[in-house]
Computed example of a mutant assay.
Amino acid sequence: MTKKIRTYSAAFKAEAVKKIADNKGNVSATAKQLGIAMQTLSNWQNKADKGQLIGTKEYDPELMAILEENKRLKRDLKVAQEERDILNEEG
């Protein structure tokens, strides 16, 4: 039996995080009200706190652009290192 993965819109995630404050910071109660896993909501809250959740006042598009560029550069570096290692083995 396969488990169905639920996806949520950015707006839903942002509203869910805002509801935590309405419940006096109670993540568990908020998750139950929304019918989602507590860990899922907690992850969204952590992202919001870091400025990485779209739709929240803490969201920082510049930070997200830097994080994406960092990921890309790490991938490029890994490829370059693998190519270097292959060339060193041959020569």
Rank of each mutant, 00 (worst) to 15 (best):
M1V: 14
M1H: 08
M1S: 13
M1A: 14
K4M: 05
K4F: 05
I5Q: 13
I5P: 00
R6H: 08
R6D: 00
R6W: 09
Y8R: 01
Y8S: 00
S9V: 03
A10L: 06
F12T: 04
K13G: 01
E15T: 00
V17E: 02
V17A: 03
K18I: 06
K18Y: 03
I20H: 01
I20A: 02
I20P: 01
D22W: 12
D22F: 10
D22H: 13
D22K: 14
K24W: 09
K24G: 07
N26Q: 06
S28W: 04
A29E: 09
A29T: 07
T30H: 06
L34G: 00
G35T: 01
G35F: 05
A37S: 08
A37E: 09
M38Y: 15
M38G: 11
S42Y: 15
N43Y: 08
W44L: 05
Q45G: 04
K47Y: 14
A48L: 06
D49C: 06
Q52I: 10
L53D: 00
T56H: 02
E58C: 00
E58I: 06
Y59Q: 02
P61T: 02
P61G: 00
E62H: 06
E62I: 13
E62F: 07
L63A: 01
I66E: 10
E69R: 12
N70D: 15
K71R: 14
R72G: 01
R72D: 09
K74Q: 15
K74L: 15
D76Q: 15
D76K: 12
L77D: 08
K78I: 14
A80K: 00
Q81Y: 05
Q81V: 10
Q81T: 09
Q81H: 08
E82W: 12
E83A: 11
G91P: 02
